[in-house]
């Protein structure tokens, strides 16, 4: 740009000035181009879901990121730093190798039906291994109760691929849309509907390690306890006032009983969505 200046003579000072200016300019431009290019690559290589989960996980409060080994008592206090994916966690095998106290297997945990033969994901889905080696995936009792009666459910089509912590099922309600995180890597091979609700049949990519990261029965009671606390606080932050007691029975549909709550916010927090 400087050669436009009349009576101009190159000096070391000018060279430095221009060099610095254009270096800054080129670096800024190059960085943006790199970011755009990487965005494109991520899109082509289907990394969108994991990035979305990464971003959601980042936004979770530390209290929501409790390590499963804190739930089962292996460790006093630990916050998960691996996005709830124990398969690639370096500490998980160390903790798992420790000797466990045998714990009582409960079918009902604090009033929720949480059968011990199922494995649970933090996003309130469960996985159950079938005799033929495939897996059944469904929403757990806690999750289905806070969702209440959905408007519609959008299951991934048969043949589509799920990845852990990626978008699994889309549940629509009149006031909110929630995506349930997939608990497992694999291909959807069927849909099903039992009297207890819908489920997916999935053929896992790697049946050996498909469930390593999922919560086991001994971790469930503490987890559910924390989820209940979280639920209470999410009600508190969503600004719901005093609510009526309905007596001593379990409530199958929370939604009906807290109509004033900011359900969009509550569900977002409970299903780990920012």
């Amino acid at each position: 740009m400087v050669p436009w200046v009349y009576e101009f003579h190159w000096t070391a000072f000018h060279v430095t000035f221009l060099l610095i200016f254009f270096t800054v300019f080129v670096t800024v431009a190059a960085t943006i181009i790199i970011a755009l290019r990487r965005t494109q690559q991520d899109e082509q290589q289907h990394r969108m879901e994991s990035i979305q989960w990464h971003s959601d996980f980042e936004d979770l409060a530390p209290a929501m990121k409790v390590c499963r080994h804190e739930l089962n008592g292996d460790v006093q206090h630990r916050v998960c730093d691996n996005e709830f994916d124990c398969r690639s966690c370096t500490l998980h095998p160390v903790f798992s190798a420790r000797k466990k106290k045998g714990s009582l297997l409960q079918y009902e945990v604090y009033g929720f039906s949480m059968p011990p033969y199922r494995l649970y994901h933090r996003g309130h889905t469960w996985v159950q291994q079938e005799d033929d080696g495939t897996f059944k995936v469904g929403i757990d009792d806690f999750g289905s109760r806070i969702i209440g009666r959905p408007h519609s459910i959008e299951l991934p089509p048969i043949g589509s691929h799920l990845s852990v912590n990626g978008r699994g099922i889309l549940v629509r309600r009149s006031d909110s849309t929630i995506r349930l995180l997939s608990p497992i890597d694999g291909e959807v091979i069927g849909h099903g509907n039992s009297e207890k609700g819908w489920y997916l049949k999935v053929r896992a990519d790697n049946p050996e390690r498909a469930t390593t990261h999922l919560l086991k029965a001994e971790e469930v009671p503490n987890w559910i306890l924390r989820e209940m606390e979280r639920l209470q606080f999410s009600f508190a932050t969503s600004g719901v006032g005093a609510t009526l007691a309905d007596g001593g029975e379990l409530v199958p549909d929370f939604h009906k009983h807290f109509p004033k709550a900011d359900w969009d916010s509550v569900l977002g927090q409970m299903f780990l969505e920012a």
Binding site: L36, T39, E43, R47, M48, H54
Partner: peptide, 9 residues
């Protein structure tokens, strides 16, 4: 998704 990924990158 594009925005989110761009934000991330």
């Amino acid at each position: 998704p594009k925005f989110l990924v761009f934000e991330f990158e």
